[in-house]
């Protein structure tokens, strides 16, 4: 149990580190000329990537709430 929650905590840190660093990395590697090449197609790619990241964040929060609820119900029993 303790191991599990500790592993979860590490995962959380890694996940948020990835989440925060991805846009920064993108911003460093992609100058506007790249984003605007191919008729600004990469702007569409960036928008879809942002929505995808948002859905991952949603999954992550719902996972956390469910785990908390499961643990609480287990304690009650």
């Amino acid at each position: 149990m303790a191991l599990k929650s500790e592993g979860m905590r590490y995962l959380t840190v890694i996940f948020f580190w990835l989440l925060c660093s991805t846009p920064v990395l993108l911003a460093q590697q992609t100058d506007p000329d790249f984003m605007r090449s191919m008729g600004k197609m990469y702007v569409v790619v960036g928008v879809i990537a942002a929505i995808f990241l948002g859905l991952i964040v949603f999954l992550f929060t719902i996972e956390k709430r469910l785990t908390k609820l499961e643990n609480q119900i287990k304690e009650h029993e």
């Binding site: 506007p32 605007r36 702007v43 928008v47 942002a50 948002g54």
Partner: peptide
């Protein structure tokens, strides 16, 4: 959640437009 996604996607587009 959708509003925040809308703001972020709008900002990405605005940066390049």
């Amino acid at each position: 959640f959708y509003g925040l996604l809308g703001v972020v996607t709008g900002a990405i587009w605005a940066k390049n437009t």
